[in-house]
Amino acid sequence: MTARTPVLGASDKLTFLLSLIPYLMDHDNVTVTEAAGHFGVPPERVRDAVRLIAVSGIPGETHQYLDGDLFDIHWDEFEDNDRIALTHLVAIDDSPRFSAREAAALIAGLQYLSSLPENADRDAVASLMAKLTRGASATPTQLAVSSPDSDAAMTVIQASGRDGVQVEFDYLNARGENEHRFVDPLRLESVDSDWYLRGWCHLRQAPRTFRLDRMSDLRATTEPVGSHDAGLVLSDTLFQASDEDLSVVIELPSSALALLADYAPDRATTPVGGDRVRTTLRVAHYHGLKRLVGGLAGLVTVVEPAEARQVVAEWAAAGAARYDEPTGRA
């Protein structure tokens, strides 16, 4: 038999059909373009949905899907003027409720956003969550996000962005180099609990990404931001692989591969006995590698190159040696 078809596409389309109808009821004779803009979809998707709605309905008394049992639209307006006017309704006249997981996704998203400085109004957020819960057809899935405390750095950056001034800070990069930076803030981004500032770096004369937790002595300046940022396009990805990246062969249990999802675009592995496999990582420099391997102690072993093994060994040895020191310092 045929395997189960993935229904993600059909589920999305059904949700759109059920949501478009109540919108059209409230927006008589709306243009296709306006409806598409409101839902954030291509106009053709609206036209497809309207064509389907207009011939759909219920079997009715006769089980024959007769005219009175179907939706209808003003066909001339639709075909000649690209406008939608429902002229007959069937069964549906209101918006559908959220599913338990849909409501949960929005509620957890709100919990996460409540750490932003401008969402300090916790009561407003709480009332919004309560409405989502009431609007769901079942108790929202138990999904919760602990909201980190607002970061003072975020408040400074956000205010500087609003006032159009540069920020300055000391920045310790991943190689361990500390430099003083002046930056035009463009965007605050985050991945889980790590926050990043994307901005124009005056030291490098280029767009750069900075981790908030690697900044020290962050301040707003009185220097206005440059005018270059109007045409500046930030790439969608925070991190980019580079041709200059180094290849490192590592060995680990195959079950631990998932822990390295961020580092192993190369999925190829070679079994080496037991459940252990070898794979190749791409790293920008060994400074990052030694920290990565140290943080996955007992799981990951660097096989080659020898230089990488040595960097890791020295890092760990220096760390271990600190515990052999006389207790005076510890």
């Binding site: 993600l8 589920s11 999305d12 059920l18 949501s19 109808i21 919108y23 996704a105 998203g109």
Partner: peptide
Amino acid sequence: LSAESRRALTKLNSLG
């Protein structure tokens, strides 16, 4: 959850 959020947004948009 990105698919769930997308569908939730579609339903929100139906409110006009």
